[in-house]
């Protein structure tokens, strides 16, 4: 009996290793490739024989890649702050108050989260030009609201709804205004939910490509995904794979670190987002 259990666990562990290898190999190979230079890049072995950081130096000095990272950080942080700020108040109304049209509004917001981004591209482009935001990071902060707002509102609403009534009752009896209740009572209780949704919004904004590609023009205004997608070498037909892999590793490592640290919260937020919308 023990032998059989051992065998079964051994087989399971082997399956785990296969799955993990499948999931992690591409990133591992990107790291290996980023440490190779020149003709070593064309050697497809799985271990860097002569590792060099030349690609990393090249990306940071030949390209405005540091600016691109800063752009992405600025945009993602602003998007998180703005969408959380708007969503906290909206979700208080949706989660705790009964008012006419609440259901219809929530369904509309759910509908917006399904929008194909390309469907608003020409209309958004017009607004962006009208406000003189073309080729400015503000155009991205503004347009990213279309996917972060519905998501944060929906998830925070489900968190708000699950908090017990007693919490609020005492405050209401004391005559506190709704504003005070949100700021003093709910905000501290929502802190874990805010971390999760904020993180998910940050990742979504950090990764966005279509709007960033369409609303920025110069290399200095680009965010990281666009910069990487459009990274070119000496000639048009020869892609600088070493540099691209180095850039990829630079922007992915912090994300992986974040994901590992907040693993449990993220999974909880993702499942809440999917199960409840």
């Amino acid at each position: 009996m023990r032998g059989r259990a051992l065998l079964k666990n051994g087989a399971m562990a082997l399956l785990w290793l296969v799955v993990a290898a499948f999931l992690l190999f591409p990133f591992y190979y990107a790291v290996v490739s980023s440490l190779r230079e020149g003709s070593a890049l064309f050697d497809a072995s799985l271990w860097p024989s002569d590792p060099t950081f030349a690609n990393y130096r090249a990306v940071m000095t030949d390209q405005p890649f540091a600016t691109n990272i800063l752009n992405s950080l600025l945009v993602a942080f602003s998007v998180v702050v703005l969408s959380l700020g708007l969503a906290v108040f909206a979700s208080y109304a949706f989660g705790r108050a009964k008012f006419k049209g609440r259901r219809l509004l929530l369904y509309t917001i759910l509908g917006v989260s399904m929008f194909p981004q390309v469907a608003v591209l020409s209309g958004l482009f017009e607004i962006v030009r009208l406000f003189g935001l073309y080729n400015s990071l503000l155009s991205l902060v503004f347009s990213y609201m279309i996917f972060t707002l519905p998501f944060t509102v929906w998830v925070l609403t489900s968190f708000m709804r699950d908090l017990p009534v007693e919490i609020e009752e005492a405050a209401i009896m004391d005559g506190a205004s709704s504003w005070t209740i949100v700021i003093r009572v709910f905000l501290p209780l929502l802190a874990p939910a805010l971390v999760t949704t904020g993180l998910l919004a940050f990742i979504a904004a950090w990764n966005e490509f279509l709007f960033a590609l369409s609303f920025t023009l110069t290399n200095e205004q680009r965010t990281v995904p666009v910069a990487i997608a459009l990274l070119t070498g000496a000639s048009q037909y020869e892609l600088p794979w070493g540099n691209i892999m180095a850039a990829s590793v630079i922007v992915t490592l912090p994300l992986i670190a974040l994901v590992l640290v907040f693993q449990r919260k993220l999974v909880a937020g993702l499942t809440a987002g999917a199960v409840k919308g």
């Binding site: 799955v19 993990a20 999931l23 992690l24 591409p26 990133f27 190979y29 990107a30 490739s33 890049l41 064309f42 497809a44 990742i203 950090w206 990764n207 490509f209 990281v224 995904p225 666009v226 990487i228 997608a229 794979w241 691209i244 892999m245 990829s248 922007v251 992915t252 994300l255 992986i256 974040l258 994901v259 590992l260 693993q263 993220l266 999974v267």
Partner: peptide, 27 residues
Amino acid sequence: RAAMLVPWAIPTVVSAKIWQWMLNDQF
């Protein structure tokens, strides 16, 4: 579970580039 989050956390553009390189016909 953490390993499972890695492909999801990698920006799509980055995954696309990594796979484009891995699927390169010559190298």
